[in-house]
Structures are given as structure tokens and as C-alpha cells.
Simulated assay, not measured.
Amino acid sequence: MNSWTKRAATTVSGMALVAGGLLAGAPSAQAAGACASDALCIYDGSAFTGKKISSRSTNSCFSTSSYDFDWIASYKNNLPVKAIVWVPHDKYPWFREARTFPAGGFSSRIGVDGLGGEYYDQVCMGNAKPWG
């Protein structure tokens, strides 16, 4: 093999490694779907697909039933505070914690069918509680 062939082979190999590195890095860069860097985003499809509800509040609650939304299948929490999904139950204070989404956390498939899909279910950020 002459020196030109060796250099060409080395260059092609190097380019393949760089391209492979870029491709391997791409899914993690896009893994959380389109969610603002200062928001909580919940999706009714796994892998950050389907309908999305987004909130930038760090101390309030919202009900998914106020939106055209099924139930929480995946989430990305870019807020500096945790978010908690609260569901009603028959004992005071009438709601219980069903799931916590930690600050900076995400899941492409939370695996809890129906979470956040009932009429009175609430998602609260920070220290907010569904009862006020």
C-alpha cells in the first residue's frame, strides 16, 4: 500500500469515527422532545410524543382535564423544582401523591396507565398543593 492510499484510508476511518460519534450523540440530544429549558412538559404518548402540556410555573397546579389530553405517558422536567401528580382519594386532605417528577428528570415511558388522566387529577410544581 503506498503512502497516499494509507493517508486516504486513515482519513476515511477518522471521518467514519467522527460521523459515528455524532450519530451516537444525536439521540440523547433529542431524547426529551421539544421542551423549553425552563419548563415542565408532559406528553400523552411515550417517547415524548402525542399531545403536550407545558408549564413554566414553579409554584402552581394545573389539571390535565382542562386540556385535550389523555394521560401522562412521558415527561421532561426542566424546572428547578419537582413536580408532583396528585390524585383524589377518600381521606383528608382528599389528594394523595401518585408520582413525583424530580427537577431535571425525564422519562420516555413512565409505565403508569391512566396517571393524570382523571377529572380531578392535578400536577403541581414546587410547593404548591392541589387544595390551595
Results as ranks from 00 to 15, higher is better:
1 M>S: 08
1 M>K: 09
2 N>H: 00
2 N>I: 03
3 S>W: 00
4 W>G: 06
5 T>M: 12
6 K>A: 14
7 R>P: 02
8 A>M: 12
8 A>P: 02
9 A>S: 15
11 T>N: 03
12 V>M: 14
15 M>L: 08
15 M>G: 11
16 A>C: 05
17 L>F: 10
18 V>F: 09
19 A>V: 11
21 G>P: 01
21 G>F: 02
23 L>H: 04
24 A>Y: 06
25 G>T: 09
28 S>I: 15
31 A>V: 11
35 C>Y: 00
36 A>I: 04
37 S>G: 13
39 A>W: 00
39 A>G: 01
40 L>P: 01
42 I>H: 03
43 Y>E: 04
44 D>I: 10
45 G>E: 03
46 S>R: 11
48 F>H: 15
48 F>A: 06
52 K>C: 03
53 I>Y: 01
54 S>G: 00
58 T>R: 06
59 N>M: 06
60 S>L: 02
60 S>I: 07
61 C>Q: 00
61 C>V: 07
63 S>V: 07
63 S>L: 13
64 T>P: 14
65 S>N: 13
65 S>A: 14
66 S>M: 07
70 D>I: 04
71 W>P: 05
72 I>C: 05
73 A>E: 12
74 S>E: 00
74 S>Y: 07
75 Y>Q: 03
75 Y>M: 08
77 N>A: 09
78 N>Q: 05
79 L>C: 10
82 K>R: 13
82 K>G: 15
84 I>D: 11
85 V>I: 13
88 P>K: 10
89 H>C: 12
92 Y>G: 07
92 Y>P: 10
92 Y>I: 04
93 P>T: 03
93 P>G: 14
95 F>Q: 12
96 R>G: 12
97 E>W: 00
97 E>S: 08
98 A>N: 01
99 R>Q: 14
100 T>Y: 04
100 T>W: 05
100 T>M: 09
101 F>P: 04
101 F>G: 06
102 P>S: 09
102 P>R: 01
103 A>V: 04
103 A>S: 08
104 G>P: 01
104 G>M: 08
105 G>K: 04
106 F>D: 13
108 S>Y: 11
108 S>T: 15
108 S>P: 03
110 I>V: 15
110 I>C: 03
110 I>E: 03
110 I>T: 13
111 G>V: 13
111 G>R: 09
112 V>P: 02
113 D>N: 08
116 G>D: 07
117 G>Y: 06
118 E>D: 15
119 Y>W: 04
121 D>V: 01
121 D>Q: 05
126 G>H: 02
127 N>L: 12
127 N>A: 15
128 A>C: 09
129 K>I: 14
129 K>F: 11
132 G>L: 02
